[in-house]
């Protein structure tokens, strides 16, 4: 089933002024319900502009967006309902924490949905558990949390609204390796358990390779590739030419391939690299 679809989506910033700038050109994509999509592209490629269309934050200059089969701009007055279906977590979401306690902050979204108090409490508790925030932290001021905890609290605020599609814009930026892995594992687990569709916007192909099923590559305002992780990452040369930072392990395999050694250049994690080389290299021996 298709949960989200765009049809000839075009967007221009500041249209009708001398500063008009095209940000998206003829985007046609379909996102399968329950899938985990990685969205990559360098700064200015249009990836953030695209995801802001998913929940109606931006209105297309031309073209259509369907969520759950419904044209979201058909009745513009009801756009608020779409916002609840597609949850967007911005970059550095911890900058948006504002309430007195972590608990109240997480409850803000559900409260705006006019849910019952019992339901709100339940959702706050569930969301906190998903992101791994302990109960004693819920009573604290969000500003007393560590950087990683703040990030998780902000994420819980969106999860508590139980969106059908969860869009995360660079959720691991600025975190240390441990914090990065924790966040990614939690999100992956949540996607598996709840069947929520997840879109992960990232600069890091390593991160995308670890969690995504499919990858959408944006380049110069258009969709450059949209395929499975293996298919997209096997075109590492093209990705590299688009100015994307290809992981060093991929560079190793691209280099080996150039030297005529029969390897798959689409290796994106150390584990894959290890498996690939174990098939190839003779064991043992001395240096």
């Amino acid at each position: 089933m298709i949960i989200l679809k765009t049809e000839h989506l075009n967007y221009k910033y500041s249209e009708g002024t001398p500063f008009a700038k095209t940000a998206l050109t003829d985007i046609n994509i379909e996102i399968e319900k329950g899938s985990f999509l990685g969205l990559i592209g360098h700064t200015g490629s249009g990836k953030s502009t695209l995801v802001q269309h998913f929940n109606g934050l931006l209105k297309p200059t031309a073209g259509k967006i369907y969520v759950d089969g419904q044209d979201i701009w058909q009745t513009p007055k009801q756009i608020r309902r779409i916002c609840f279906k597609v949850g967007l977590v911005f970059q550095y979401p911890e900058h948006q924490l504002f309430d007195e306690t972590v608990e109240k902050d997480i409850a803000f979204g559900p409260r705006n949905m006019e849910l019952s108090e019992d339901e709100i409490q339940k959702r706050v508790k569930d969301a906190a558990e998903i992101v791994g925030l302990s109960e004693d932290l819920l009573k604290k001021s969000p500003f007393d949390l560590s950087g990683g905890e703040k990030r998780r609290a902000a994420l819980a605020g969106v999860l508590a609204m139980q969106p059908e599609v969860l869009v995360l814009d660079e959720p691991t930026a600025g975190l240390d390796p441990k914090g990065r892995d924790t966040i990614l594992e939690r999100i992956k687990q949540y996607q598996k358990d709840s069947g929520t569709t997840v879109v992960l916007v990232s600069h890091s192909m390593e991160d995308v390779a670890k969690v995504a099923d499919k990858v959408l590559v944006m380049n110069k305002n258009v969709v450059a590739m949209y395929d499975t992780v293996e298919q997209v990452f096997s075109r590492s040369d093209e990705l590299s030419q688009m100015g994307l930072a290809v992981p060093s392990v991929t560079k190793i395999f691209m280099g080996l391939k150039k030297k005529g050694i029969p390897v798959n250049p689409g290796v994106f994690t150390v584990e894959q690299g290890k498996q690939e080389l174990m098939k190839l290299l003779p064991k043992g021996g001395t240096l």
Binding site: D176, K178, V270, E271, L277, L281, K283, G285
Partner: peptide, 23 residues
């Protein structure tokens, strides 16, 4: 201590553990 090593180092380390003669 929750840190990574550069990927080339990690790849060599993993293969060495499997018994390959690598520096």
């Amino acid at each position: 201590v929750g840190l990574d090593v550069p990927q080339p180092t990690e790849l060599m380390y993993e293969l060495k553990k499997e018994g390959y003669a690598l520096p």
